[in-house]
Amino acid sequence: MQPRKPTFLRQRLNSFGYAGQGLAAAFQSEVNFRWHVLSAGLAVALGFYVGLNRWEWVAIAGAIGLVWMAELFNTALEVVVNLVSPERHPLAGKAKDIAAAAVLMAAVTAATVGLLVFWPYAVHFIENWDKHSF
């Protein structure tokens, strides 16, 4: 008797499981991804602290997603390049460098979004420093 083919729902659930395994693998093996997760956590905590509005949350969530996505693509590309070209090769290095540049661009974009969103709160805080009690 042949094994049963998974149902459509089971296939979808499995795909989420595989994605979760990919996130876990990146988190365990990539120091930079852990830094991105930490930075995202700090941005979210600061967002709750200052009381971001809906559109500010949209911008912050989009920036976080952009950086995580770029880092995950970079990690995947590095793994594949290492698989197909275990020895040093100029083209393999070039591919890795370009993927790393994409992560850098995403991080710079996210930092810019963070400054645009949080700067007014920082200015307000500084202007009202003497009124704050700690």
Rank of each mutant, 00 (worst) to 15 (best):
Y18Q: 11
D97A: 11
F73R: 06
K131Q: 11
V44N: 04
H124C: 00
N74E: 12
L9N: 11
T7Y: 04
W57N: 10
G41L: 15
L83I: 06
P90M: 04
A70P: 09
H89S: 14
L72M: 15
K5V: 14
M69V: 04
M69Y: 07
A26K: 10
E127P: 00
Q28K: 13
V108E: 05
G114N: 04
N74M: 05
V108L: 14
L115S: 03
N14K: 14
W57E: 10
L42V: 15
I98A: 06
F27M: 07
F27E: 11
L104D: 10
A24I: 11
A70E: 09
G114C: 03
V84Y: 01
I60V: 14
S133I: 15
Y18C: 01
A101R: 08
A40Q: 06
A95I: 15
W35I: 14
M1K: 12
A24L: 11
L52K: 11
R12E: 08
D130A: 08
L13K: 09
F48C: 13
Y121F: 14
L83N: 00
L72A: 08
N14Y: 15
V50Q: 01
M69W: 10
Q21P: 00
I60C: 01
E56S: 03
A43S: 09
A122E: 01
L38P: 04
V58D: 05
S39A: 07
T75L: 10
A63W: 07
V67Q: 05
A45D: 12
I98Q: 06
P90E: 08
A63H: 05
A63R: 06
V81Y: 02
L116C: 03
W55R: 10
T75A: 04
Y121E: 01
A95E: 07
F125S: 07
K96F: 13
F8K: 14
A40K: 06
E127I: 02
V84I: 15
A61W: 12
L104F: 13
G20M: 06
L13Y: 12
P3S: 12
T7V: 05
N14P: 01
L23N: 07
I64L: 05
A92K: 01
P6N: 03
G93F: 04
M105I: 15
L83S: 01
V58S: 05
F8M: 12
A76Q: 03
G93W: 03
L116P: 00
A95D: 04
